[in-house]
């Protein structure tokens, strides 16, 4: 599904990713962990196609396509979804309206007919249950006045509606209290299936108590320095990151 080879990327003149390799198969959940500044968010943003990140070397292959060649919206059409670390507020733009535009943009790309208002409402009614989304949030402006937890829930709600093939969750656990973390995690778990791959970018192990990854990778100084199973995350929780850095050095 996703194959990253020797990826180098910089912001301005600062190199952040320095030869990252990662391979994700369909249906797998990968956790990317690492200390602050290791390049976790940069990886998420490069995969989603955000401006300001300069890929200087390496390749990213997604479903046989060169992902880096695609514009951000084309990546979205192809099934790449990024749950933002800091979802933005868009005043005056209705939450449902944005989502409907997004769904129909994707459907159009796939040659499907666009959903009308009734069909769309039917679709989201179902999906709202997944993250226990409050109805009044639907008709508010996108993320405007949402609490931190509501914003993250909204991200997962959008993910459930858009049904991506590759979902990248950038620090979705940050700023969540334990109840919100549970709800969001349950939402993500319910979206796991054999075709959908998920990359969890996180600083803490606690998210992985709720979402069991198939693989755990440690990112440090722009490279993956250690990979393993779920146990690796526990080990990290216990020992911190330093021992791996030493081991890798």
């Amino acid at each position: 599904m996703l194959n990253i080879q020797d990826l180098h990327a910089k912001i301005g003149n600062k190199e952040i990713l320095k030869g990252l390799n990662l391979s994700v198969n369909a249906g797998e959940v990968h956790a990317i962990m690492g200390p602050n500044g290791s390049g976790k968010s940069t990886l998420a943003n490069v995969l989603a196609g955000r401006n300001g990140y300069d890929v200087t070397k390496g390749t990213v292959e997604y479903e046989g396509k060169d992902l880096l060649e695609l514009a951000p919206e084309e990546r979205a059409w192809a099934g790449v979804f990024l749950a933002f670390q800091y979802p933005v507020e868009i005043p005056g733009v209705n939450n449902v309206y944005l989502l409907k535009a997004a769904v129909n943009a994707v459907r159009k790309y796939r040659g499907q007919t666009e959903l009308d208002a009734v069909e769309f409402l039917g679709l989201i009614k179902e999906k709202m249950k997944i993250v226990k989304m409050k109805e009044d949030l639907l008709n508010r402006s996108v993320n405007e006045g949402f609490s931190g937890g509501e914003k993250k829930r909204n991200e997962i709600f959008q993910m459930s509606v858009l049904e991506p093939k590759l979902a990248i969750l950038d620090e979705t656990d940050s700023g969540l209290d334990i109840d919100a973390l549970k709800i969001v995690s349950e939402g993500v778990n319910s979206l796991r299936n054999e075709e959908r791959s998920i990359i969890l970018v996180t600083h803490y192990q606690r998210l992985l108590d709720y979402i069991k990854p198939d693989h755990v990778h440690v990112l440090s100084n722009g490279k993956i320095i250690k990979s393993g199973g779920p146990d690796l995350a526990l080990e990290l929780e216990e020992k911190g990151y330093d021992w791996i850095k030493e081991e890798a050095a």
């Binding site: 989603a48 196609g49 955000r50 401006n51 300001g52 514009a71 951000p72 919206e73 990546r75 979205a76 059409w77 979804f81 990024l82 933002f84 800091y86 979802p87 933005v88 868009i90 005043p91 005056g92 733009v93 209705n94 309206y97 944005l98 989502l99 535009a101 997004a102 943009a105 994707v106 790309y109 402006s141 996108v142 959008q158 858009l162």
Partner: peptide
């Protein structure tokens, strides 16, 4: 008009021009 807002919309599959339109229309809604 934020790069962040535009990127957010585009990441959801909305073309840049449509995203600009949407954000500006939201701004003018009242």
């Amino acid at each position: 008009i934020g790069d962040d807002q535009l990127f957010y919309c585009m990441q959801r599959g909305i073309k840049e021009e449509d995203a600009v339109n949407m954000i500006v229309n939201g701004f003018c809604k009242e």
